[in-house]
Nucleic acid binder design. Sequence first.
DNA 1: GCTTGCGTTCGAGCGCGCTCGAACTCCTAG
DNA 2: CTAGGAGTTCGAGCGCGCTCGAACGCAAGC
Lengths: 161, 161
Amino acid sequence: MATDDLMSKALAALDEVDGPMSVEVIHRLVDVSAATDPMTITEAADLLDMSPHTLRYYERIGLVEVGRDASGHRSYDAEAVRRLVFLTRMRLSGMAIRDLQHYVRLADEGDDTVPERLDLLLEHRDTIRRQLKELTLSLAATEYKIATYGGHTGPSSVGKA
Amino acid sequence: MATDDLMSKALAALDEVDGPMSVEVIHRLVDVSAATDPMTITEAADLLDMSPHTLRYYERIGLVEVGRDASGHRSYDAEAVRRLVFLTRMRLSGMAIRDLQHYVRLADEGDDTVPERLDLLLEHRDTIRRQLKELTLSLAATEYKIATYGGHTGPSSVGKA
DNA sequence: GCTTGCGTTCGAGCGCGCTCGAACTCCTAG
DNA sequence: CTAGGAGTTCGAGCGCGCTCGAACGCAAGC
C-alpha cells in the first residue's frame, strides 16, 4: 500500500488528534501540502495516490489547469496541487465529478460566486454528515455480526494476509 | 425524501444514542425489522428505499431467494427482508456486489464457511473504519473551507431550498 | 545513431451497478 | 366484458469515472 501519499499522511495525523478539533488542528490536517517545487505528472500522481491517466483526465474535463515545461511536459505547481488535493478530498467524500466541474467553474468566475460556492459546500457538508451516520450504522451492524460469528471486535485485523 | 424506510428510521434512532454503544443498543439499531408478514415487491422496495427493478436484479444475480405467491408474484418473507437489509447495509458501506455474491454463496454452503465469512466481515470492518477516517478528514476540510468563505459551521443547513 | 524511458494526444473501451422498455399475465372493480 | 393497475421475464442500455492502447515527441546515455 502506498504510505507516502498525502491522504495516508493526513490519516496518520488524524490518529494523533483526539480532543475537539481546533481551527489550527484542522488547518494542520487540511494543509498537509507545504509550498513545493513544481512536479512531474508521476510525482503528482504518487503524492495524490492516483494514476497519471486520471490526472490527465481531470485536466481534460476542466477540473484543473496545468502548465507545461520547456519540452511540453505537464508541470504541477503548488496551486495545481492544492486544487487537486481539494478535488480528491471531495471525490473521496462522494461529490460527483459533475458537481466538481460546476464548483470549479464558479471558482474561476471570481469572488462574485463565493455565496453559491458556499451553498454547495454547506450541502456537501450535510451529505458527508449523513454518510458518517450511515457508515457508523454499518460499522455497528458489521461488528454485531462479527460478534455473533464468535469473532472478537478488537481494534483492528491488521496483520492478516 | 422517503422517511419511512428502515435506514431513515435507524438513522433517527442513532441520533438518540450518544453514550457508548452497548450490545443491546446495537441490536436495537441493527434489528429494526421485527418479524413481519410477507410483502409485495413494492412494499419491500419502499421499506428498503430501493426500486423494484433493483430488487429483481439482486435476485437475478443470486443475492437473495424470494418465494412466489399463488399468482406468481414475489413474496418477501422475513428472512428475505433480513438478508436484504444486510445486503443494503453492506452496499451502502461500499462492499462490492461481487463480494456480496461471494459472501452469500458461502452463507448458503452452511456453517463450515463461518470462519471465511468472519474473515470477510473483519476485512470489511477495517474498510469501514478507514472510510470513517477519510470522511472525517473530508468533513474537516469542508468545514475549514466553509469557514474561510465566511460561512458559519452550525449544526446543519436544514431548511435551505 | 540508436535505444530507453518518460512524457504527449486522441479516441475508444470497460467494469460497475443499476435502470429501462417491451411484451406478457393476472386480478379486481365498474 | 373491459379497462386498469400491479406484477412477471428477458435482454438491452446507460451514466459514471476512470483506464487503456496506439502512435508519436523529446532528451539522455551508450
